[in-house]
Design a protein around this nucleic acid. Structure first.
Lengths: 216, 216
DNA sequence: TTCTGGTGAGTAAGTGATTACTTACCAGAA
DNA sequence: TTCTGGTAAGTAATCACTTACTCACCAGAA
């Protein structure tokens, strides 16, 4: 009879990191209620008891995951730089690409949705760190451009939400609802940015209902 | 000692309807895994055993909910009508309003997200009936308007997704993430439609990167 | 009118499996 | 020898689901 093979003895920190890693994957795939501590232990290659040596409860482990820091500082500084040059296309493309580009793993998005739906206490904070940053940055930029006279007078926060909405929705369709995406992602991003910027730039205000050559 | 008060004896159909109603609310609030059959029974005012007289398993009850028909035919015919008149604003406003207007209950949206995240078998069908309809209708209309020469040449499906994305994202922020919405919904819809239509109408094609008066 | 047997709505009280979490213990490096 | 990383084997609670029953009602036969 084979016993469980001797597990490599690791430092507390290493274990904790591996544990969080394994748990993140599972929570993202099946949600908090859909994931058992036994599963998590097996995925991390340890006994269930050890899970509770590291985290007092399952919720505490979940909370630790949501509370983990993320750094998007490189992206934000890139945006800042393009913003100084008033390179609208690039500012919008940077934000859109960050969310659409392939290879960006769906874990965080799923985790975010699950935590919000399941009503976890820390989901607000999670949302703030992963998403609100982008709205605020983009809204601030749009505000600036309105003051420049380059964009139409529009609620900047609403506009930022609208643009990010297009992009996030695209991801949602693809990764959560399994809608196949056939065209290369650069095309998609470019199209979104085109339409949105075109709709945003200051032009002679269009008539309320502009009907164009109805041919019936 | 009070016994449980005699429950009003109902017909099988009435019970089933009430059961589905109660279960829908709970599944939408806490997801499939987060809802227990005991809770459902209590919410429906019956014993747990009776739940299983109506549905063989908890999953079957869930499936029955997802499979329930929905009719959005009035909306679709209203859209059809405006489409014939080439009333762009109204077509887009109709679709947007349908999803943003207050009082539309968040149950369906939550149910949809939960079912997709939890990977339920019927979630595809659910998505198809509640959402895909809109993309397809809007995409078809956009296609028509492109052929009219009224809209820019653009992938109609992508454009439809983009617009609906803005709107759905708005709901998502509000109802799932609890972002407060301060302005009246008509304003929001109107702004979205404005920006999007403005970005869509055929104009002298803009230069690839149109930089506008950078003043630094 | 009054028995009577069938039927369908309803439940109390389980069933074993699974859940999150504990206890009591061990092996080895310092 | 004393921590530290580790586990096997629990525990009470809860889960989805069953079993074995009651009760109300109704259609006829007596």
């Amino acid at each position: 009879m084979m016993r469980t093979p001797r597990p490599s003895r690791q430092s507390s920190q290493e274990r904790q990191a591996g544990l969080i890693q394994a748990a993140t994957t599972l929570f993202a795939k099946k949600g908090f209620n859909g994931t058992t501590t036994k599963e998590i232990a097996r995925a991390a290659g340890i006994s269930e008891a050890l899970v509770f040596k590291h985290f007092p409860t399952k919720r505490a482990l979940y909370a630790a995951i949501l509370a983990e820091k993320v750094t998007v500082s490189e992206l934000l500084s890139a945006i800042e730089e393009s913003a100084k040059k008033r390179d609208d296309r690039r500012v919008f493309t940077l934000i859109a690409s960050y969310r659409i580009r392939p290879g960006v793993d769906p874990t965080l998005l799923r985790l975010l949705l699950f935590s919000a739906l399941e009503g976890h206490e820390l989901s607000d904070m999670f949302f703030g760190k992963h998403h609100k940053v982008f709205y605020d940055h983009l809204a601030a930029y749009i505000q600036t451009r309105i003051e420049d006279g380059a964009f139409r007078r529009i609620d900047p926060l609403l506009a930022a939400r609208a643009f990010i909405g297009m992009v996030v929705h695209h991801r949602l369709l693809h990764e959560i609802f399994g809608v196949p995406i056939d065209r290369p992602y650069e095309d998609t991003v470019s199209t979104y940015v085109d339409v949105f910027l075109n709709g945003l730039v200051a032009t002679p205000p269009p008539g309320r209902t502009r009907k164009v050559r109805a041919r019936i």
